[in-house]
Design a protein around this nucleic acid. Structure first.
Lengths: 207, 207
DNA sequence: CTTCTAATCTTTACACTGCCAAGTCTCGGC
DNA sequence: GCCGAGACTTGGCAGTGTAAAGATTAGAAG
């Protein structure tokens, strides 16, 4: 029988993408505990069992969302680093700015990415995506202290990441006093980044 | 009618405590998403609706668990600081050790305490408990750099906490390479703490 | 163009969840 | 002894994840 043009087709066509996109919004709105497969399906205008053909389980969808988050995070970091010129220290600060901007724009996703919930469903693609972000950071730190020993470099890579990541985590959760986390990041983020880079330079320059 | 001694009494007696205790274990076992009110009730050998008389909702129970987590965290920090003697720098390192030990022993709870999920609870007692941990830390940092300006102190309080917190978060999630997070914390935790204190002392000593 | 297969989506079903309402039991004060 | 107030249970409802089976369609094979 002929179907009216406005009727929705039986096959969605890009359901996988639609689910990831809807899921991401839902995640930011309701948090990890409020995240629901059926609601994702609803927002994609599809039956509640449709997602099963694209994701084995709800954790599978969350893993995919987290993986894309890492890709976006990596992109944000390297884009901001590129904008910061060629000075290694400036580039490291730039990467940090990109890191913060992503976290501020996707706070719940950011926490999911760095939570046990994410790594639990062992997804190789997720681990891979996380690793590439790590390597980007490692190179940026090592470029700032090229003359330092391997041991010191190792420590400074950890230290720099920890300082930035910890700062963001605490701000996002409102632990550092400020109510508006986005404003707080802008206001104090650069100071935190500067302190971090300064500490790295000092530790790396004087053995 | 007379009841055998072995039969369980109709009134539990300490159900609230039992639920908190069971819930805490369940949380570490299954994660935030696997946490279930009915399973808590089951583990306390009680009907599924019993918890309602002690906690208004599942978030209420989670908030209570998180609140106690903060109390324990504060206790662990100050106990370890006390063990570290009177030198401010040593005490600050000690507090960090206590912080790390708590996080390593209760990784899921730790993440819950510092997650956006916890902010949705809107529990005054939770906020209060978090604040007291913050003040403990603030005092320890300020004691290391008593001559610094208020502005610098402020920044270093944030910086020190961020560095420690970030380090733990990354280790717990396995981002820093190591598989065994407990081992990684012991192996590299002290180095991270030393780097942090050193940076604070330098920034506070030279205006 | 027809046919057939595989992929996509829907319907139905089941065990589970949080929470609400209405009962049952037991303790503590009168 | 009684009786009210809590503490707890049973039963029920809407919502969840996911498994099974049927409906629909796209796209290849003929």
């Amino acid at each position: 029988m002929a179907r009216a043009k406005t009727a929705k087709p039986y096959h969605h066509g890009e359901l996988r993408e639609a689910l990831v996109s809807a899921g991401r919004k839902l995640l930011e709105e309701k948090g990890v505990r409020g995240f629901t497969l059926r609601e994702c399906a609803r927002r994609a205008s599809v039956s509640h069992a449709a997602p099963a053909h694209h994701f084995a389980s709800i954790d599978d969808l969350l893993a995919e969302i987290a993986t894309r988050g890492y890709h976006e995070l990596t992109a944000a970091m390297s884009a901001e680093a590129r904008r910061s010129g060629s000075d290694p220290a400036a580039r490291l600060v730039g990467q940090g700015v990109g890191y913060m901007a992503f976290a501020a724009a996707n706070p719940v996703l950011f926490q999911l990415m760095f939570s046990r919930e994410a790594n639990r469903f062992e997804a190789p693609a997720l681990a891979e995506a996380a690793k590439s972000a790590y390597h980007l950071h490692r190179e940026a730190v090592e470029a700032v202290i090229p003359q330092a020993s391997g041991e010191v470099k190792e420590r400074m890579v950890d230290f720099a990441w920890a300082a930035v990541h910890g700062f963001i985590t605490l701000v996002l959760e409102g632990q550092l006093g400020e109510r508006d986390s986005s404003r707080a990041l802008k206001a104090r983020g650069l100071a935190a980044l500067s302190a971090m880079v300064e500490a790295v330079v000092r530790a790396g320059g004087e053995p």
